[in-house]
Design a protein around this nucleic acid. Structure first.
Length: 423
RNA sequence: CCAGGGGUGGCAGAGUGGACAAUUGCAGCAGGCUGUAAACCUGCCGGCCUUUGUGCCUGCGGGGGUUCGAAUCCCUCCCCCUGGA
Protein backbone atom coordinates (compact mmCIF):
# COMPACT_ATOMS: atom_id res chain seq x y z
CA UNK A 1 0.00 0.00 0.00
CA UNK A 2 2.90 2.32 0.73
CA UNK A 3 6.03 2.73 -1.26
CA UNK A 4 8.72 5.37 -1.35
CA UNK A 5 10.96 5.37 -4.34
CA UNK A 6 13.84 7.65 -5.18
CA UNK A 7 13.70 8.46 -8.87
CA UNK A 8 16.73 10.61 -9.19
CA UNK A 9 19.63 11.87 -7.18
CA UNK A 10 21.00 15.31 -7.85
CA UNK A 11 24.54 15.21 -9.22
CA UNK A 12 26.08 18.00 -7.22
CA UNK A 13 24.02 18.06 -4.02
CA UNK A 14 22.23 15.57 -1.79
CA UNK A 15 18.87 16.60 -3.20
CA UNK A 16 16.67 13.79 -4.41
CA UNK A 17 13.56 13.37 -6.47
CA UNK A 18 11.11 10.77 -5.31
CA UNK A 19 7.64 9.39 -5.41
CA UNK A 20 5.70 8.35 -2.35
CA UNK A 21 2.81 6.01 -2.93
CA UNK A 22 0.04 6.01 -0.34
CA UNK A 23 -3.46 4.49 -0.30
CA UNK A 24 -4.89 7.91 -0.98
CA UNK A 25 -2.62 8.93 -3.78
CA UNK A 26 0.88 9.73 -4.88
CA UNK A 27 3.15 12.38 -3.45
CA UNK A 28 5.94 13.69 -5.60
CA UNK A 29 8.92 14.68 -3.51
CA UNK A 30 10.34 17.05 -2.51
CA UNK A 31 6.99 18.34 -1.38
CA UNK A 32 5.26 20.42 1.23
CA UNK A 33 2.33 19.29 3.33
CA UNK A 34 -0.19 22.07 3.61
CA UNK A 35 -1.13 22.45 7.23
CA UNK A 36 -4.71 21.94 8.34
CA UNK A 37 -4.13 21.61 12.07
CA UNK A 38 -7.71 21.31 13.18
CA UNK A 39 -9.00 19.73 10.01
CA UNK A 40 -9.31 22.76 7.79
CA UNK A 41 -6.82 24.79 5.82
CA UNK A 42 -7.29 28.27 7.17
CA UNK A 43 -8.66 30.28 4.29
CA UNK A 44 -8.68 27.66 1.54
CA UNK A 45 -10.50 24.49 0.56
CA UNK A 46 -8.68 21.20 0.22
CA UNK A 47 -9.90 21.02 -3.35
CA UNK A 48 -8.31 24.32 -4.24
CA UNK A 49 -5.07 23.43 -2.54
CA UNK A 50 -5.10 20.15 -4.40
CA UNK A 51 -5.64 22.02 -7.64
CA UNK A 52 -2.56 24.12 -6.90
CA UNK A 53 -0.51 20.97 -6.50
CA UNK A 54 -0.88 20.10 -2.83
CA UNK A 55 -0.51 16.35 -2.48
CA UNK A 56 -0.59 15.86 1.26
CA UNK A 57 -1.98 17.69 4.27
CA UNK A 58 -0.84 17.85 7.87
CA UNK A 59 -3.33 17.57 10.70
CA UNK A 60 -2.62 17.69 14.41
CA UNK A 61 -3.34 14.95 16.88
CA UNK A 62 -3.45 17.18 19.92
CA UNK A 63 -6.41 19.13 18.63
CA UNK A 64 -8.34 15.93 18.05
CA UNK A 65 -7.22 14.49 21.35
CA UNK A 66 -8.44 17.28 23.57
CA UNK A 67 -12.04 17.00 24.60
CA UNK A 68 -12.04 13.56 23.05
CA UNK A 69 -12.64 14.94 19.59
CA UNK A 70 -11.21 11.73 18.14
CA UNK A 71 -14.46 10.08 19.13
CA UNK A 72 -16.19 12.06 16.42
CA UNK A 73 -13.66 10.81 13.91
CA UNK A 74 -14.14 7.28 15.17
CA UNK A 75 -17.82 7.55 14.34
CA UNK A 76 -16.99 8.71 10.85
CA UNK A 77 -14.29 6.08 10.44
CA UNK A 78 -11.32 8.30 9.63
CA UNK A 79 -10.23 11.85 9.03
CA UNK A 80 -10.59 11.20 5.32
CA UNK A 81 -14.25 10.42 5.77
CA UNK A 82 -14.82 13.19 8.30
CA UNK A 83 -13.27 15.79 6.02
CA UNK A 84 -14.70 14.01 3.02
CA UNK A 85 -11.45 14.10 1.08
CA UNK A 86 -9.49 11.38 -0.55
CA UNK A 87 -6.04 12.88 -0.39
CA UNK A 88 -3.01 11.64 1.53
CA UNK A 89 -2.93 12.97 5.09
CA UNK A 90 -0.36 13.03 7.84
CA UNK A 91 -0.92 13.66 11.52
CA UNK A 92 1.59 15.19 13.87
CA UNK A 93 1.79 13.34 17.15
CA UNK A 94 1.11 16.21 19.52
CA UNK A 95 4.74 16.19 20.56
CA UNK A 96 5.16 19.69 19.28
CA UNK A 97 2.57 20.92 21.73
CA UNK A 98 4.82 19.77 24.54
CA UNK A 99 7.20 22.37 23.22
CA UNK A 100 4.84 25.13 22.15
CA UNK A 101 2.69 24.85 25.23
CA UNK A 102 5.55 24.11 27.55
CA UNK A 103 8.04 26.58 26.22
CA UNK A 104 10.40 27.81 28.87
CA UNK A 105 10.26 24.57 30.74
CA UNK A 106 13.96 24.09 31.04
CA UNK A 107 14.25 22.61 34.46
CA UNK A 108 14.10 18.92 33.99
CA UNK A 109 11.75 16.03 34.31
CA UNK A 110 8.91 16.32 36.70
CA UNK A 111 9.83 19.74 37.85
CA UNK A 112 7.05 22.22 37.61
CA UNK A 113 7.88 25.54 36.08
CA UNK A 114 6.22 28.62 34.75
CA UNK A 115 6.00 28.49 31.02
CA UNK A 116 7.31 31.94 30.53
CA UNK A 117 10.58 33.18 31.93
CA UNK A 118 10.88 36.17 34.23
CA UNK A 119 12.32 38.27 31.43
CA UNK A 120 8.81 38.59 30.09
CA UNK A 121 8.52 41.79 32.05
CA UNK A 122 10.83 43.49 29.60
CA UNK A 123 9.15 42.05 26.61
CA UNK A 124 9.19 45.33 24.71
CA UNK A 125 12.96 45.53 24.78
CA UNK A 126 13.34 41.85 24.18
CA UNK A 127 11.07 41.96 21.19
CA UNK A 128 13.16 44.73 19.75
CA UNK A 129 16.25 42.61 20.28
CA UNK A 130 14.45 39.74 18.68
CA UNK A 131 13.75 41.73 15.53
CA UNK A 132 17.32 42.96 15.29
CA UNK A 133 18.85 39.61 15.98
CA UNK A 134 16.53 37.93 13.59
CA UNK A 135 17.69 40.23 10.84
CA UNK A 136 21.21 39.10 11.50
CA UNK A 137 20.12 35.53 11.66
CA UNK A 138 21.06 35.14 15.29
CA UNK A 139 18.94 33.60 17.97
CA UNK A 140 19.88 34.39 21.52
CA UNK A 141 18.40 33.84 24.91
CA UNK A 142 17.07 37.35 24.66
CA UNK A 143 14.89 36.70 21.70
CA UNK A 144 14.12 33.05 21.43
CA UNK A 145 12.23 32.73 24.65
CA UNK A 146 10.19 35.80 24.20
CA UNK A 147 8.88 36.07 20.73
CA UNK A 148 6.26 33.36 20.66
CA UNK A 149 3.02 35.12 21.54
CA UNK A 150 4.41 37.34 24.20
CA UNK A 151 1.95 39.75 25.76
CA UNK A 152 -0.81 37.56 24.49
CA UNK A 153 -4.04 38.50 26.25
CA UNK A 154 -4.29 34.94 27.39
CA UNK A 155 -0.94 35.17 29.09
CA UNK A 156 -2.30 35.54 32.58
CA UNK A 157 -4.08 32.25 32.22
CA UNK A 158 -0.99 30.79 30.69
CA UNK A 159 1.22 31.67 33.56
CA UNK A 160 -0.80 29.31 35.65
CA UNK A 161 -0.36 26.56 33.13
CA UNK A 162 2.04 23.89 33.99
CA UNK A 163 3.65 21.23 31.94
CA UNK A 164 5.12 18.19 33.54
CA UNK A 165 7.17 15.81 31.50
CA UNK A 166 7.37 12.30 32.87
CA UNK A 167 9.21 9.31 31.57
CA UNK A 168 6.05 7.83 30.18
CA UNK A 169 4.33 10.94 28.88
CA UNK A 170 3.40 14.53 29.33
CA UNK A 171 0.84 16.12 31.58
CA UNK A 172 -0.25 19.57 30.64
CA UNK A 173 -3.04 22.03 30.81
CA UNK A 174 -5.30 22.43 27.83
CA UNK A 175 -4.69 26.04 26.84
CA UNK A 176 -8.25 26.44 25.64
CA UNK A 177 -10.06 25.50 28.79
CA UNK A 178 -7.56 24.78 31.55
CA UNK A 179 -8.36 21.10 31.65
CA UNK A 180 -5.59 18.77 32.69
CA UNK A 181 -4.50 16.41 29.92
CA UNK A 182 -2.11 13.53 29.69
CA UNK A 183 -0.53 12.57 26.41
CA UNK A 184 1.87 9.70 25.92
CA UNK A 185 3.39 7.71 23.06
CA UNK A 186 0.76 5.06 23.52
CA UNK A 187 -2.16 7.49 23.63
CA UNK A 188 -0.84 9.49 20.70
CA UNK A 189 -0.54 6.45 18.48
CA UNK A 190 -3.92 5.14 19.58
CA UNK A 191 -5.50 8.43 18.63
CA UNK A 192 -3.54 8.63 15.39
CA UNK A 193 -4.76 5.18 14.46
CA UNK A 194 -8.30 6.33 14.98
CA UNK A 195 -7.66 9.45 12.93
CA UNK A 196 -6.35 7.21 10.19
CA UNK A 197 -3.96 9.52 8.39
CA UNK A 198 -1.70 7.81 5.89
CA UNK A 199 1.48 8.98 7.54
CA UNK A 200 1.66 9.34 11.30
CA UNK A 201 4.45 10.49 13.55
CA UNK A 202 5.99 9.12 16.71
CA UNK A 203 5.32 11.05 19.89
CA UNK A 204 8.48 12.93 20.73
CA UNK A 205 9.69 15.68 22.97
CA UNK A 206 10.56 18.77 21.01
CA UNK A 207 13.20 20.71 22.88
CA UNK A 208 13.73 24.45 22.61
CA UNK A 209 16.82 26.23 21.32
CA UNK A 210 17.35 27.31 24.91
CA UNK A 211 17.65 23.76 26.14
CA UNK A 212 21.19 23.03 27.19
CA UNK A 213 23.13 19.93 26.27
CA UNK A 214 22.20 18.05 29.41
CA UNK A 215 18.51 18.64 29.06
CA UNK A 216 18.51 17.98 25.33
CA UNK A 217 20.22 14.68 25.99
CA UNK A 218 17.67 13.70 28.61
CA UNK A 219 14.85 14.62 26.26
CA UNK A 220 16.54 12.64 23.55
CA UNK A 221 16.66 9.51 25.66
CA UNK A 222 13.01 9.99 26.43
CA UNK A 223 12.13 10.46 22.78
CA UNK A 224 14.00 7.25 21.98
CA UNK A 225 12.15 5.28 24.62
CA UNK A 226 8.94 6.73 23.36
CA UNK A 227 9.85 5.78 19.80
CA UNK A 228 9.89 2.12 20.80
CA UNK A 229 6.59 2.48 22.61
CA UNK A 230 5.10 4.10 19.55
CA UNK A 231 6.20 1.20 17.38
CA UNK A 232 4.77 -1.27 19.89
CA UNK A 233 1.45 0.47 19.90
CA UNK A 234 1.51 0.87 16.14
CA UNK A 235 1.95 -2.87 15.74
CA UNK A 236 1.23 -4.26 12.34
CA UNK A 237 -1.05 -1.53 11.15
CA UNK A 238 -1.37 -1.79 7.39
CA UNK A 239 -3.25 1.26 6.27
CA UNK A 240 -0.80 3.71 7.82
CA UNK A 241 2.94 4.18 8.10
CA UNK A 242 4.82 5.51 11.09
CA UNK A 243 7.67 7.98 10.97
CA UNK A 244 10.21 8.12 13.78
CA UNK A 245 11.52 11.48 14.88
CA UNK A 246 15.16 12.40 15.18
CA UNK A 247 15.90 14.81 18.02
CA UNK A 248 19.15 16.06 19.51
CA UNK A 249 18.80 19.81 19.23
CA UNK A 250 21.81 21.64 17.96
CA UNK A 251 24.34 19.15 19.24
CA UNK A 252 26.27 17.15 16.72
CA UNK A 253 26.83 14.01 18.76
CA UNK A 254 23.22 13.96 19.92
CA UNK A 255 21.88 14.35 16.40
CA UNK A 256 24.13 11.55 15.24
CA UNK A 257 23.13 9.37 18.16
CA UNK A 258 19.47 10.04 17.58
CA UNK A 259 19.65 9.46 13.85
CA UNK A 260 21.44 6.16 14.38
CA UNK A 261 19.01 5.02 17.02
CA UNK A 262 15.85 6.00 15.16
CA UNK A 263 17.30 4.51 12.01
CA UNK A 264 17.81 1.20 13.79
CA UNK A 265 14.08 0.89 14.41
CA UNK A 266 11.55 -0.28 11.83
CA UNK A 267 10.07 3.08 10.98
CA UNK A 268 8.84 3.66 7.46
CA UNK A 269 10.38 7.10 7.35
CA UNK A 270 11.84 9.84 9.45
CA UNK A 271 10.92 13.19 10.81
CA UNK A 272 13.61 15.65 11.78
CA UNK A 273 12.30 17.54 14.75
CA UNK A 274 13.22 19.71 17.64
CA UNK A 275 15.41 22.71 17.86
CA UNK A 276 17.41 23.30 14.76
CA UNK A 277 19.85 25.60 16.42
CA UNK A 278 20.30 29.28 16.93
CA UNK A 279 20.52 30.51 13.36
CA UNK A 280 19.50 29.55 9.88
CA UNK A 281 22.95 28.17 9.19
CA UNK A 282 22.48 25.77 12.07
CA UNK A 283 19.58 24.12 10.25
CA UNK A 284 21.97 23.07 7.51
CA UNK A 285 24.49 21.84 10.05
CA UNK A 286 21.94 19.84 11.98
CA UNK A 287 20.71 18.18 8.80
CA UNK A 288 24.23 17.44 7.66
CA UNK A 289 24.88 15.72 11.01
CA UNK A 290 21.72 13.64 11.09
CA UNK A 291 20.75 12.70 7.56
CA UNK A 292 23.83 10.63 6.66
CA UNK A 293 22.88 8.14 9.37
CA UNK A 294 19.39 7.60 8.04
CA UNK A 295 18.55 4.84 5.60
CA UNK A 296 18.96 6.52 2.26
CA UNK A 297 15.96 4.76 0.78
CA UNK A 298 13.51 6.01 3.38
CA UNK A 299 11.66 9.32 3.22
CA UNK A 300 12.79 12.23 5.41
CA UNK A 301 10.40 14.85 6.63
CA UNK A 302 11.63 18.10 8.14
CA UNK A 303 9.04 19.08 10.68
CA UNK A 304 7.74 22.60 10.68
CA UNK A 305 10.25 24.27 8.43
CA UNK A 306 9.07 26.37 5.55
CA UNK A 307 10.89 29.63 4.84
CA UNK A 308 12.11 29.71 1.27
CA UNK A 309 15.84 29.65 1.96
CA UNK A 310 15.43 26.97 4.60
CA UNK A 311 13.43 24.81 2.22
CA UNK A 312 16.08 25.06 -0.48
CA UNK A 313 18.94 24.46 1.91
CA UNK A 314 17.19 21.48 3.45
CA UNK A 315 16.40 19.87 0.14
CA UNK A 316 20.03 20.30 -0.73
CA UNK A 317 20.83 18.24 2.35
CA UNK A 318 18.44 15.50 1.31
CA UNK A 319 15.04 16.36 2.81
CA UNK A 320 12.00 15.03 0.94
CA UNK A 321 9.03 16.42 2.80
CA UNK A 322 8.08 19.51 4.72
CA UNK A 323 5.08 20.92 6.48
CA UNK A 324 4.74 24.50 7.49
CA UNK A 325 2.15 27.02 8.62
CA UNK A 326 3.92 29.89 6.95
CA UNK A 327 1.99 30.06 3.66
CA UNK A 328 -1.38 30.26 5.40
CA UNK A 329 -0.34 32.12 8.53
CA UNK A 330 1.61 34.77 6.68
CA UNK A 331 -1.42 35.26 4.45
CA UNK A 332 -3.64 35.85 7.46
CA UNK A 333 -1.06 38.26 8.79
CA UNK A 334 -0.77 40.13 5.52
CA UNK A 335 2.53 38.85 4.14
CA UNK A 336 2.69 37.58 0.59
CA UNK A 337 5.31 35.44 -1.14
CA UNK A 338 7.06 36.81 -4.15
CA UNK A 339 10.19 36.05 -6.11
CA UNK A 340 11.49 39.38 -4.95
CA UNK A 341 11.14 38.34 -1.34
CA UNK A 342 8.20 38.51 0.97
CA UNK A 343 6.04 41.57 0.84
CA UNK A 344 4.06 43.08 3.66
CA UNK A 345 0.81 43.86 1.89
CA UNK A 346 -0.61 45.77 4.84
CA UNK A 347 1.92 48.53 4.24
CA UNK A 348 0.26 51.76 3.14
CA UNK A 349 2.45 52.08 0.07
CA UNK A 350 0.63 49.20 -1.59
CA UNK A 351 -2.69 51.02 -1.51
CA UNK A 352 -1.82 52.61 -4.83
CA UNK A 353 0.18 49.76 -6.32
CA UNK A 354 -1.44 48.42 -9.47
CA UNK A 355 0.98 45.51 -9.85
CA UNK A 356 -0.03 41.99 -8.83
CA UNK A 357 1.36 40.56 -5.60
CA UNK A 358 4.10 38.86 -7.57
CA UNK A 359 4.39 39.87 -11.24
CA UNK A 360 6.02 36.53 -12.01
CA UNK A 361 3.32 34.46 -10.33
CA UNK A 362 0.80 32.65 -12.48
CA UNK A 363 -1.91 32.21 -9.88
CA UNK A 364 -5.42 33.49 -10.46
CA UNK A 365 -5.00 36.16 -7.84
CA UNK A 366 -1.93 37.60 -9.50
CA UNK A 367 -3.62 37.37 -12.88
CA UNK A 368 -6.66 39.27 -11.74
CA UNK A 369 -5.96 41.50 -8.77
CA UNK A 370 -3.69 44.36 -7.82
CA UNK A 371 -1.67 44.73 -4.67
CA UNK A 372 -3.81 47.77 -4.03
CA UNK A 373 -6.99 45.71 -3.90
CA UNK A 374 -5.50 43.04 -1.61
CA UNK A 375 -3.99 45.75 0.57
CA UNK A 376 -7.30 47.55 0.79
CA UNK A 377 -9.18 44.39 1.74
CA UNK A 378 -6.61 43.47 4.37
CA UNK A 379 -6.67 46.93 5.92
CA UNK A 380 -10.43 46.93 5.99
CA UNK A 381 -10.20 43.54 7.67
CA UNK A 382 -12.30 42.00 4.97
CA UNK A 383 -11.92 38.25 5.22
CA UNK A 384 -11.77 38.10 1.44
CA UNK A 385 -8.35 39.73 1.54
CA UNK A 386 -7.07 36.86 3.64
CA UNK A 387 -8.71 34.34 1.35
CA UNK A 388 -7.11 35.86 -1.75
CA UNK A 389 -3.70 36.09 -0.14
CA UNK A 390 -3.90 32.55 1.21
CA UNK A 391 -4.72 31.32 -2.26
CA UNK A 392 -1.73 33.16 -3.67
CA UNK A 393 0.68 32.00 -0.99
CA UNK A 394 -0.32 28.36 -1.19
CA UNK A 395 -0.18 28.44 -4.98
CA UNK A 396 3.16 30.21 -4.88
CA UNK A 397 4.88 27.85 -2.47
CA UNK A 398 3.55 24.74 -4.21
CA UNK A 399 4.72 26.17 -7.49
CA UNK A 400 8.16 26.63 -5.97
CA UNK A 401 8.19 22.93 -5.10
CA UNK A 402 7.19 22.10 -8.66
CA UNK A 403 10.09 24.18 -9.91
CA UNK A 404 12.42 22.54 -7.43
CA UNK A 405 11.41 19.07 -8.58
CA UNK A 406 11.83 20.10 -12.15
CA UNK A 407 15.27 21.50 -11.46
CA UNK A 408 16.40 18.29 -9.78
CA UNK A 409 15.04 16.30 -12.68
CA UNK A 410 16.98 18.49 -15.08
CA UNK A 411 20.13 18.43 -12.99
CA UNK A 412 20.17 22.12 -12.26
CA UNK A 413 18.96 22.25 -8.68
CA UNK A 414 22.07 24.00 -7.47
CA UNK A 415 21.72 26.80 -9.98
CA UNK A 416 18.01 27.07 -9.36
CA UNK A 417 18.63 27.43 -5.66
CA UNK A 418 21.19 30.15 -6.25
CA UNK A 419 18.82 32.03 -8.52
CA UNK A 420 16.01 31.97 -6.00
CA UNK A 421 18.16 32.92 -3.05
CA UNK A 422 19.72 35.78 -4.93
CA UNK A 423 16.34 37.38 -5.48
C1' C B 1 -35.00 82.84 29.98
C1' C B 2 -34.84 78.95 34.11
C1' A B 3 -32.85 74.08 35.95
C1' G B 4 -29.39 70.21 35.21
C1' G B 5 -25.33 67.83 32.46
C1' G B 6 -21.12 68.52 29.43
C1' G B 7 -16.76 70.62 26.28
C1' U B 8 -9.69 66.30 27.00
C1' G B 9 -4.84 64.53 21.64
C1' G B 10 -7.69 62.21 14.21
C1' C B 11 -12.24 59.79 16.72
C1' A B 12 -14.39 57.54 21.13
C1' G B 13 -13.51 58.03 26.11
C1' A B 14 -10.58 57.92 31.30
C1' G B 15 -8.49 61.34 34.60
C1' U B 16 -11.17 65.92 38.52
C1' G B 17 -4.88 69.96 42.78
C1' G B 18 1.50 67.43 42.16
C1' A B 19 3.62 60.69 40.17
C1' C B 20 0.04 64.04 33.29
C1' A B 21 2.65 64.97 27.18
C1' A B 22 -2.09 62.91 29.83
C1' U B 23 -5.12 55.34 31.17
C1' U B 24 -7.61 52.62 27.43
C1' G B 25 -9.91 51.41 22.73
C1' C B 26 -10.29 52.60 17.53
C1' A B 27 -7.92 54.83 13.40
C1' G B 28 -2.73 55.81 11.56
C1' C B 29 2.76 54.19 10.82
C1' A B 30 6.46 50.31 10.89
C1' G B 31 7.81 45.42 11.85
C1' G B 32 7.62 40.16 13.31
C1' C B 33 5.74 35.24 12.44
C1' U B 34 9.22 28.13 10.56
C1' G B 35 5.67 20.04 13.44
C1' U B 36 -0.87 26.85 14.24
C1' A B 37 -3.38 28.51 22.05
C1' A B 38 -1.99 32.92 15.82
C1' A B 39 -7.67 36.90 10.74
C1' C B 40 -2.22 37.09 15.78
C1' C B 41 1.70 39.66 18.26
C1' U B 42 5.26 43.77 19.03
C1' G B 43 6.97 48.77 18.68
C1' C B 44 5.83 53.97 17.39
C1' C B 45 1.84 57.40 17.47
C1' G B 46 1.67 66.73 20.15
C1' G B 47 6.06 69.69 18.34
C1' C B 48 11.46 70.71 18.50
C1' C B 49 16.79 69.32 18.47
C1' U B 50 24.66 69.19 14.55
C1' U B 51 23.61 67.47 22.78
C1' U B 52 17.42 61.87 21.66
C1' G B 53 17.78 63.90 27.31
C1' U B 54 15.21 62.53 34.88
C1' G B 55 16.09 68.05 27.52
C1' C B 56 13.11 72.30 25.68
C1' C B 57 8.34 74.20 23.86
C1' U B 58 3.09 74.05 23.26
C1' G B 59 -1.22 71.69 25.40
C1' C B 60 -7.25 69.13 28.16
C1' G B 61 -13.34 75.14 24.55
C1' G B 62 -11.50 81.06 24.93
C1' G B 63 -9.84 84.68 28.55
C1' G B 64 -8.60 85.89 33.55
C1' G B 65 -7.57 84.36 38.66
C1' U B 66 -6.19 81.27 43.25
C1' U B 67 -1.74 78.18 44.24
C1' C B 68 5.14 76.71 45.09
C1' G B 69 2.17 73.74 41.39
C1' A B 70 -4.11 73.57 37.53
C1' A B 71 -6.88 69.14 32.48
C1' U B 72 -8.35 69.18 37.70
C1' C B 73 -10.42 74.85 42.21
C1' C B 74 -12.76 80.11 41.38
C1' C B 75 -14.69 84.11 37.94
C1' U B 76 -16.21 85.25 33.09
C1' C B 77 -17.33 84.43 27.97
C1' C B 78 -18.47 80.95 23.93
C1' C B 79 -20.49 76.28 22.33
C1' C B 80 -23.26 71.43 22.84
C1' C B 81 -27.03 68.07 25.20
C1' U B 82 -31.55 67.11 28.35
C1' G B 83 -35.94 68.90 30.76
C1' G B 84 -39.18 73.31 31.86
C1' A B 85 -41.51 78.16 30.45
Amino acid sequence: MFKFKILKKDKTTKARLGIFKTPHGLIKTPNLAIVATKGGIRGLSFEQAKKFGAEIFMINTFHFFRQEKYKIIKKFGSLHKFLNINYPLMTDSGGFQVFSLGFGMEHGVGKVADIFPEEMKNSAELTRNYAENKKNGIYTENNIGVNPRDKNPRLSALKKNLVRIYDDGVEFIDPYNGQKLFLSPKISIKVQKILGADIIFAFDECTSPLSDYKYTKEALKRTHKWAIKCLDEFGKTKNQVLFGIVQGGEYEDLRKESAQFINSLPFFGFGIGGSLGKSKKDIIKVLSWALPYLDYKKPRHLLGIGEIDDILNSIEQGIDLFDCVIPTRWARHGTGFSFNGRINLKASKYLTDKKPIDPKCKCNICRKYSRAYICHLLREKEIYGIILLTEHNVFWILNLFKEIRKSIKENRFSNFKKTILKL
